[in-house]
Design a protein around this nucleic acid. Structure first.
Lengths: 275, 275
DNA sequence: AGATATTTGTTCGTATGTATT
DNA sequence: TAATACATACGAACAAATATC
């Protein structure tokens, strides 16, 4: 399970441009040489000469690699391009771009979350450090007081998601952890959460928002106790209940909010431009 | 659940370069205007003038957006940049870059696959068209004859994964489907599959390879019957068994192959470059 | 089918900014 | 502080691709 082809782009979108060919060559060069994060690439001038392209073209190629997160480039002496490990944030952002036009629903996300998050929590139960347990508790206490204003309400919702991010940090399965972190970030940016922030959700259905918060707090408290007891089976059960419950509240809120503000939403422009 | 911020990059990596600022501005412009795939952006010259940057800088910005999959650009009259929906292939490749340095194990991937694939299959059972059922059957028959050479053996392994891709196509949950498709592509490129292709796995453990193929065929046949019967519950059960079984074989093969060829693997260079 | 106009793609020369020593 | 090494940015000219007539 190592070194799956870094370069093979799969489908030739059209005619490959010069800069794209350079990109592929540099990629396979990195893979073939087995370069690791931190290793430096030759400097611009040398690369230009090596690939027989001009500055502008080489710059575009390096830009492409930089956007993909595969290299970092810095100015000054000892500067230039160096191999980088793709950051978590960058990957999540690039992946979020894919779903931008997919019209995901909360149900679809929660259908996956319901399956993965209990497993993540159970795995984390085994490895959570004392520091992480304290961090969990801090997130819980932040949510334990009724919010005095909307900003605090919003921060409490985000803290609830931080709770789940901490579990991802403790999980040794990087693949599982990434998936859960990404769903957390999707939820952090989702419309319903934003509506809660802006106060629209409260106005639409204050009782539901209160119950969402109260149920969340109760669930996190119970989970924290199970984590401290290092009881993976109980953690799994509690987390599943928590996710199912949260989904119910969120979906209900989404329906309310959408129904109330449908007319305010700007209709999307007609596709297939101009002409 | 619409229009989560397209632009907010999150962490300012360092000092923003000119081209990066242009990128962010164009992104938020696309989001604010609610542009859809196909909608055209102003042409290079106009953009240069609008943002007050030179041609090279503008080109870097457009290159960045192109790499992210957010725009496509073409030459000629009526050419220029237009908004694009990020393609599945591009997203999977960008995401694969993240895991390139994460040293994922088969176990980690299968820990997630075991949870998601049965759910995907159950969901697909409801929606599979006749054409898709036929495609499934075609994949199964391709695997039903003992392979005559290594190339055929390899194509059969890939056909098995195509079987699972077809299920993803039939699933209405785009988020679940993406996750399953991505794991399929990870497996297609994983070392063990490649070793099977090159014949190393056969030489190391021919009995295990035969059993992997035989069990896979049997499982897919049973699944096909359950799909035709539109029996989601049975599909779910069968798929779980199939995945667990496949994991066992693959992990065993991986161990054998790694043990036999450890010395041939090129050691990775020392990290933290020069100096 | 071929000519032409339009728009991106590439190159070069030069100047500026920035981090190291 | 100054000198050096490197990326970053500008502008003009030319090459290549493609839609339209």
């Amino acid at each position: 399970m190592r070194k799956a082809a870094l370069h093979k782009t799969g489908v030739p979108t059209s005619l490959p441009k010069r800069s794209d060919m350079v990109v592929e060559q540099i990629k396979s060069w990195i893979a073939d040489e087995g370069l690791n994060p931190g290793d430096r690439l030759p400097q611009e001038k040398e690369l230009m000469h090596h690939f027989g392209v001009s500055k502008g073209t080489m710059r575009e190629a390096l830009k492409s690699l930089e956007v993909q997160g595969l290299i970092r480039v810095s100015t000054g002496p000892k500067g230039g391009a160096s191999v980088a490990s793709v950051s978590l944030q960058r990957s999540m952002q690039l992946l979020a771009n894919y779903f931008y036009f997919q019209d995901l629903t909360l149900r679809q996300i929660y259908a996956v979350r319901r399956l993965l998050e209990p497993e993540l929590a159970a795995a984390a139960a085994e490895y959570l450090t004392e520091a992480e347990l304290d961090a969990l508790e801090k997130s819980v206490t932040l949510c334990s007081h009724p919010p005095t204003d909307r900003d605090m309400e919003h921060r409490q919702r985000l803290a609830e998601l931080d709770f789940h991010d901490i579990l991802a940090n403790a999980c040794r399965n990087e693949y599982l952890a990434f998936n859960c972190r990404f769903m957390n970030s999707l939820l952090k940016n989702c419309t319903v959460i934003k509506k809660i922030y802006s106060g629209e959700a409260q106005r639409a259905s204050p009782a539901r928002v209160r119950k969402l918060a109260a149920d969340g707090l109760r669930a996190h408290l119970a989970l924290l106790a199970a984590f401290r007891a290092r009881d993976p089976a109980r953690v799994r059960t509690l987390m599943l209940e928590h996710i199912v419950e949260a989904e119910r509240h969120m979906v209900a809120l989404e329906a309310v909010v959408v129904a109330r503000f449908m007319d305010e939403r700007p209709a999307r422009r007609s596709a297939a431009a101009a002409e």
